[in-house]
Every structure is written in C-alpha cells, then in structure tokens.
Computed example of a mutant assay.
Amino acid sequence: MRLRTAVLAAASALTLLVAVPGSAGAAAGEFEYSFAGLDGATQRARILDPESDECISLPEVADPAASEPAFSPRNRTDAVARVFTNPDCTGDAFDLRPFTGRGSERLKLRSVLFIR
C-alpha cells in the first residue's frame, strides 16, 4: 500500500512539473520602452519574457554620459515592473502594474526590475 502511494505521489509531482510552462523565474510577456536614437529619432525597444528579480540596465541608455534616459514604458508582463532613473536599479523608482502598467514621456528610466 505504501509503495502504491509513493508511486502515485511521484507521478503526480512529475505531471505538475511537465504541466507548468516556461521558467518559474521569468515574467511572461513583453516590456516596451522608447528612447532617442543616435540620429535623435524616437525608437522603440522591447524585452520579451524577462527574468524576475534580476536588474536589467537598458543597453541603449545605460550610460548617462552618452545618452538621454528612456521614456514611455509599457509593462505587458505578468509581473510588476519597477523602473529606475539610473542604471543598475538605482535612483528613484516607480512601479508599473502587470499587464497594463504604462508611463508617459515624462517617466524617465535606465533600468528595470521585474517582481513576481
């Protein structure tokens, strides 16, 4: 009887692992932001399925001496997106709700952290 219970528990655990899609450490969805390109024209960039709880410095605007900060973020992930005014998730922060969080052109950012 105990062997049958152990086998059933192991099979259930395996089924659960197979049924859960994607990485448990990733926020599902897309994060989008605007930035000024080298020619001054506004460009859009996006991050797909970003890792949770890992700081992401936005590569196009990571160097404050060489670029203006990004702006107009759109959070279409299933996690809270905490955006920061400086690289390496430092400076002032603002949280964007999952799925519908967004900021205007006045919200400046250089890094983001996804919190699940």
Rank of each mutant, 00 (worst) to 15 (best):
V7A: 13
P87E: 09
V80T: 15
R76F: 12
P64H: 06
T5M: 11
A36N: 10
F94W: 11
G91Y: 05
R46G: 14
E51K: 10
A11E: 05
R110V: 07
R44T: 12
L58Q: 06
C89A: 04
M1I: 13
T85S: 15
S104Q: 14
E51D: 15
A27H: 00
A10N: 07
A36F: 09
S72D: 14
L96C: 09
D63T: 12
I56E: 07
Y33R: 06
V83I: 14
E32C: 10
E30D: 07
S57A: 03
A26L: 03
E51G: 02
A81R: 00
I56Y: 03
T90H: 08
F84N: 07
L58H: 13
I115F: 00
A66Q: 11
E60C: 06
E51A: 15
S57H: 12
A70V: 06
V7Q: 11
N75L: 03
S57C: 05
L48P: 00
R46T: 08
F35P: 11
R44I: 13
S52A: 08
N86S: 08
L113G: 01
R74Y: 09
R82N: 04
G91E: 08
R106C: 04
G25S: 02
L109D: 11
V83M: 02
F84A: 05
V7T: 15
L109T: 12
L107H: 08
D39E: 11
P64K: 04
F99I: 11
L8W: 10
P73L: 08
T100Q: 07
S104V: 05
R46Q: 14
P50V: 03
P50Q: 13
G101N: 08
G25T: 01
